[in-house]
């Protein structure tokens, strides 16, 4: 099954697109949607953040505006469920709901919405206790979530489990836990879809270096079963890697992930960077922003 890329770039946090969303300025938004389409993403994220005020109007306008220029399906990213629903109502192609969380106050409404609009949804493993603390809590929440989805009469084919990827600069054990969790998920629910916000792992890292963490991390996650990720649409090396067009890199990172010794003397500078990154992602070497220099 081909890996699914969800483009992250249409985001309210962008200095250009954020104001454009608020001012209903279609041009920069449509340009971004076209560029992402040209970059071949499977979904375009429409990330409006919490959007507490007038989120529904904004999402409706955005979906309509983007659909004028592209047929690429959309992923509706907001914690405002009214806004999600407004987007679902006007979307031409079946969109993805990002996301339904496991919180008691949100899950029923979220799943009802998925059912009503027959939409796929990202099942965020965020519970009443907040962010899962380790791999075991992730596994527990995944089982709970699958049960709830089944109980309501939805197919688990509709759910994309998101273990919540988090920055390496915050807690390496969480970075490792997500990789380990993907391995467990294969046993918990064979064939289930999964996704995650890949760029979170390099949050806080200088922009030009983020790709060196994102790529080995996604390779490690895919190796353990990840089927999709929310990614930088324009990272060409990443696109190559996730679509299996860079076998030698995938093999190299797999070796590091398996704890095999890697002889770096025959590697290119770029490959050495990826190996260093894989080692910090494994927790073998403590991360710092100068991780590539040591």
């Amino acid at each position: 099954m081909a890996f699914i890329r969800i483009g992250e770039n249409l985001n309210v946090m962008s200095k250009v697109l954020g104001p454009a969303m608020k001012e209903r300025n279609a041009k920069p938004i449509q340009e971004m949607a076209v560029r992402e389409t040209e970059a071949g993403v499977d979904y375009i994220e429409v990330n409006i953040g919490p959007a507490k005020k007038a989120g529904a109007e904004m999402m409706e306008w955005l979906v309509k505006t983007i659909q004028e220029v592209t047929d690429t399906p959309l992923s509706l990213d907001t914690t405002n469920m009214e806004a999600t629903e407004a987007g679902l109502k006007v979307a031409k192609n079946p969109p993805l709901i990002n996301s339904v969380s496991l919180q008691t106050s949100r899950i029923d409404k979220g799943l009802q919405m998925a059912k009503q609009y027959d939409a796929d949804f990202i099942a965020l493993l965020w519970s009443d206790g907040g962010m899962p603390r380790d791999v075991n809590e992730r596994a527990m929440h995944a089982v709970d979530f699958i049960q709830k989805v089944t109980d309501i009469g939805l197919s688990t084919d509709k759910m994309w489990i998101d273990p919540i990827l988090s920055p390496i600069s915050v807690e390496i054990n969480q970075v490792k836990a997500c990789v380990e969790f993907m391995g467990m998920l294969k046993d918990i629910a064979p064939g289930i879809k999964s996704t995650g916000g890949l760029s979170n792992v390099s949050n806080g890292v200088p922009d030009e270096l983020r790709t060196y963490l994102n790529i080995p991390y996604v390779i490690m996650l895919i190796k353990n079963g990840l089927t999709s990720a929310i990614v930088d649409a324009f990272d060409k090396n990443l696109t190559e890697a996730v679509h299996g067009r860079n076998d030698s890199l995938v093999r190299l990172i797999s070796k590091v992930a398996d704890g095999e010794k890697v002889d770096t003397s025959s590697l290119s500078d770029l490959e050495i960077k990826y190996v260093k990154s894989a080692k910090v992602l494994m927790g073998e070497i403590l991360f710092s922003n100068a991780w590539l220099e040591v």
Binding site: S169, L286, F287, S288, N289, A290, V294
Partner: peptide, 10 residues
């Protein structure tokens, strides 16, 4: 912050 400590030493 352990990462920043390492960074400064580097």
């Amino acid at each position: 912050d352990v990462n920043l400590a390492k960074q400064l030493n580097i």
